[in-house]
């Protein structure tokens, strides 16, 4: 049989993978190889597959993904630094039928916004929270983040993170998994095709949870910042595997629904 020509393969009916319709035509402003782009498109793909474009509202953070509203074709709110979970809470409370998700980096979610993060999950807000952990402040130029590894060199820990001075990297996802309001807490990555598939499944589950009103769904994506780390994207993936995964292990930390806590409910105070 005659060899197939490329033109015979590249036909609309043979298309098996392409850019989501929910992604806009705006080119992403991220550095080459940045994990943000992968997570963005997974969110877009999930919104497209669940057919919830009109029902979904996103909350953008402050950080590299501050302008992510330019890339996913839904309605958006741009929160102040760290406040995305509070903004998402406010929106979701007055519009309980909408799908509301927040998207934050490690500085936004685990440093300046720790209180908003903890309390949104602790209240069991029926929102999706996506957390990009790349162990650095990317936008401001590679400073130390709450999740920066011990010994990791950043522009504000130029001799490596020293726990005597800087304290320890924060495993906030483990903290959040302990909270009764959490329904689903998982840690994912997007550095290999298999991990991308798993991460998408997790995002899809989180959005589905949101419709079931069973508590907060929280997805950490252990990510790279090759510009901040000053290595190339392929080496960054390798560095992440070798250095971050032992401390930030991938997998589900909680999968169910928020706790009722009925057994701890106190009797009314008698006067």
């Amino acid at each position: 049989m005659a060899e197939l020509q490329l033109a015979d393969i590249i036909k609309p009916e043979n298309k098996v993978y392409g850019k989501s319709k929910i992604m806009t035509d705006t080119p992403l402003h991220y550095c080459y190889g940045c994990s943000h782009g992968v997570v963005h498109k997974l969110i877009a793909e999930v919104i497209e597959e669940l057919d919830i474009q009109e029902e979904t509202v996103g909350v953008a953070p402050v950080g590299c993904s501050v302008m992510m509203y330019n890339y996913i074709d839904i309605d958006w709110m741009e929160a102040a630094h760290g406040r995305a979970p509070a903004v998402a809470t406010g929106y979701k409370r007055v519009n309980p039928k909408k799908y509301v998700f927040s998207y934050q980096g490690d500085g936004d979610l685990a440093a300046i916004g720790t209180a908003e993060t903890m309390h949104a999950v602790n209240r069991g807000e029926n929102i999706v929270m996506i957390f990009i952990n790349n162990a650095t402040y990317g936008m401001t130029g590679g400073q130390m983040a709450p999740t920066t590894m011990v010994g990791q060199v950043t522009s504000t820990s130029p001799y490596g993170r020293n726990v005597d001075i800087n304290g320890y990297p924060l495993r906030i996802t483990e903290l959040l998994a302990m909270l009764p309001g959490a329904a689903y807490v998982t840690r994912q990555s997007v550095h290999t095709p298999a991990n991308v598939r798993k991460c998408k499944k997790a995002i899809r589950k989180a959005f589905e949870n949101s419709a079931k009103n069973i508590g907060t769904s929280f997805i950490e994506v252990v990510s790279t910042c090759n510009s901040g780390w000053k290595i190339d994207p392929v080496a960054a993936n390798q560095w992440m595997e070798e250095n971050m995964f032992p401390f930030y292990p991938l997998g589900d930390l909680k999968d169910g629904e928020r706790d009722s806590f009925e057994q701890f409910s106190v009797q009314k105070l008698k006067k």
């Binding site: 015979d8 393969i9 036909k11 043979n14 098996v16 993978y17 992604m23 992403l28 550095h191």
Partner: peptide, 14 residues
Amino acid sequence: GMVCPDSCITVYRV
């Protein structure tokens, strides 16, 4: 396509 951060890859298969 999966790992492309910029959604610039389209894949066809027969």
